[in-house]
Amino acid sequence: MGTQTVTPQAVQHPYTRYLRTDRLPHIWCPGCGIGIAMGAFLAAVDELGIPQEKVAVVSGIGCTGRVAGYVKFDSYHTTHGRPIPFATGLKIARPEMTVVVFSGDGDLVSIGGNHLIHAARRNIDLTVICVNNFNYGMTGGQMGPTTPHRARTTTTPYGNLEFPFNLPYLVAAAGAVYVARWTVLHVFHLRESIKEALQRRGFSFIEVVSPCPVGFGRPNKIGEGLEEMRFYREHALIQNGLHPKDAALSFRDRIVVGKFVDEARPSFLQVLEDHFRNASRDPSHREG
């Protein structure tokens, strides 16, 4: 049992082979949870043993959109709100790839909100990891569609009058086959959940609740990221199999986490394969 000091080449972090280390350190603020979520994803890929060249990561714009620039997979940094259309095309053209959309709540839910629900409706074989920090962090902490009711942001200085989306309920209602929510404090749960989601055929969605000490913590007098994480530790409630309708997040109240939906439904690519097989001219392949 030893304590080593700095010998950078002696030991290597297990994530290093999946990271573009020349881009590091990343731009995320001290206390930001996106690095933890990205690490959980890298650990999931590592443990599943998916070949590095068979993974594609697509990101949109925002703090979480930077993920595509840091991971050493085939990655693409799309325009605002459009990672899912790009990933849909990529998955249909290259079905053998594991396509992961890694983006934030502002990107996926507000600007790309329609793409999200329609991808879930089609049940396209994607894994969407949505890091929810309750505001638009990169542009200065504006109110977004996931900002809790009564929470303060730079554009809602007297408290948010609107009501937020319940993301698991939204995507489950639209037809996703795998829906889960974890906070970044639940690193191991998150990693196992991402592993499950990567193995599912169909649209899988994982919401990752993350601290945003600068954009959300400061105007709401929460303090640093550590205070937010302590809040997760005290208020997070694991309820696997809960109906997503009851999984709404509210401001400074309990945070329901867990795996809410896990069901089987023919995915878009399976339907597409069946269609091509039936439509082929060879009578031996014709059904019915």
Binding site: V11, L19, W28, C32, G39, V184, V187
Partner: peptide
Amino acid sequence: CMRVCPEYAII
């Protein structure tokens, strides 16, 4: 600690 470090600074 290794998994929760956002900077991947602990092994």
